[in-house]
């Protein structure tokens, strides 16, 4: 265990040093990350005002709170491994990673954490600006706030596990970009990023209940913005745990098979 902590400390240090070289990218990221919620809030606030101040229980300030919360959760849970994996496999970058005595997933986790730590001031600034500009109204209970962080951590673990598994597809397919793109769109709609899930057509809502995506974004975001009943919180945590366990099982299975495949190609 202490061994793993040392590994993480070193990985974090390297990743932060690496990222600091691209400071201009921070500004780009600031604009990109702020624009999405600003557009969503504007669109849905306009709808709410057209319909007499409220749609589906959301007022303009409620929408603002929801989309700011979604942005925060998305920032905390987002990964980009599946964009890098195909290059790694194709160009043989995986071989040196496999030679290391630790599982390569740890390096990726550390890299993501480093990036998130560096972006923290940026995201804080964006939150503040959007909050003031759109008069967001957050209404969670203290109990909701207390459960937010654990829910966020589980959401990150779940999303990272699923997306790392998805990334492993690169062992079998050479062109994964289309699959990745489809995945991004599905997540955009079914995780609650683009709109609160209660706005989806009824059949789609039924589908989301059986998929892991809403537990990666919508659940923590609602805890923070509107608040959830005690029952909904318990259901949410259970669903997150079950999906996480399933995801971890799938990950180790896919990893072992993929590795065999990789050695076959490389040897």
């Amino acid at each position: 265990m202490t061994h793993l902590i040392a590994v993480y400390r070193q990985q974090l240090k390297t990743a932060i040093a690496e990222q600091l070289q691209y400071r201009a990218a921070l500004v780009i990221w600031l604009i990109e990350v702020a624009l999405g919620p600003a557009v969503s809030i504007s669109v849905w606030s306009t709808v709410a005002r057209n319909e007499g101040g409220e749609v589906n229980g959301y007022s303009p300030s409620g929408f603002a709170a929801y989309f700011i919360a979604t942005m925060l959760v998305n920032y905390a849970t987002q990964t980009w491994v599946f964009w890098e994996f195909s290059r790694r496999v194709r160009e043989g970058e995986f071989s040196p990673l496999l030679l290391r005595p630790v599982h390569p997933i740890h390096a990726d986790i550390a890299q993501h954490l480093a990036y998130k730590i560096l972006m923290l001031p940026v995201i804080g600034l964006v939150t503040l600006i959007l909050w003031l500009a759109f008069h967001a109204g957050f209404t969670p209970s203290t109990a909701n706030l207390a459960t937010f962080l654990p829910a966020l951590l589980l959401a990150f673990a779940l999303r990272f596990t699923l997306e790392w598994t998805l990334a492993l597809l690169a062992f079998w397919l050479t062109q994964v970009n289309v699959i990745n793109q489809l995945y991004v769109v599905v997540v955009l709609f079914l995780s609650g990023q683009l709109l609160p899930l209660s706005f989806l057509p009824a059949p789609l809502q039924a589908v989301t209940a059986w998929l892991p995506f809403q537990w990666m974004v919508a659940f923590p975001a609602q805890l923070l913005s509107t608040g959830l009943s005690a029952q909904a919180v318990v259901t949410g945590f259970l669903a997150q745990l079950i999906w996480l366990l399933l995801g971890l099982g799938l990950l180790s299975l896919t990893w072992r098979r993929g590795l065999k495949r990789y050695t076959a190609v490389g040897g």
Binding site: V47, N50, V55, F199
Partner: peptide
């Protein structure tokens, strides 16, 4: 994606 989003929006309002 663009069309799906627009169709959801217009299922809640007639004019934007």
């Amino acid at each position: 994606t663009a069309l799906a989003f627009v169709s959801v929006v217009f299922s809640y309002t007639r004019v934007l």
